[in-house]
């Protein structure tokens, strides 16, 4: 039914992502399709990595580890931006299309009062993406 799953991850908050990653793994096994781990690094050092390349290396390690643990095909697609927070939604949409993925699985916070002003990343991607979007609360 699906061809490829994209799962955006924030390496600084991996703890919040367990459910989303499990969901992606289950779906990947169900349809025997690959999962692409996408993360956007900042260009300046942060708590995850000091260079975009170090960040990319960590993402690849995560993809490898997840793929081995759940037994699905996994790869990493590291991106970087001078404004990772501001550009995240746009980058995710473009990357999903570029990768030819038709299912996005992403974690998102619960709907909150101020979402009308600043929609969650999950909400924003779902609103504009051509792919199906599975928002994991």
């Amino acid at each position: 039914m699906y061809r490829k799953i994209v799962i955006p991850v924030d390496l600084a908050h991996l703890g919040d992502l367990a459910k989303a990653m499990q969901t992606a793994a289950d779906l990947a096994r169900l349809y025997s399709i690959p999962v692409v781990y996408v993360a956007v690094a900042g260009t300046v050092p942060d708590e995850v990595a000091r260079t975009p390349e170090e960040h990319a290396e960590k993402l690849r390690a995560l993809a490898r580890e997840q793929g081995e643990r759940h037994g699905h095909e996994a790869s990493a697609h590291p991106l970087h931006s001078a404004d990772p927070q501001g550009e995240l939604n746009r980058l995710l949409r473009a990357t999903t299309a570029e990768l030819g993925a038709d299912l996005v699985v992403m974690a998102s916070h619960k709907p909150a009062l101020l979402d009308w002003l600043l929609p969650s990343h999950g909400g924003s991607v779902a609103e504009h993406s051509e792919a199906s979007v599975f928002v994991v609360r």
Partner: peptide, 12 residues
């Protein structure tokens, strides 16, 4: 503290 990935709403 030098983080560029803080929530955008802080800029607002």
């Amino acid at each position: 503290g030098g983080k560029i990935n803080a929530p955008v709403v802080q800029r607002v």
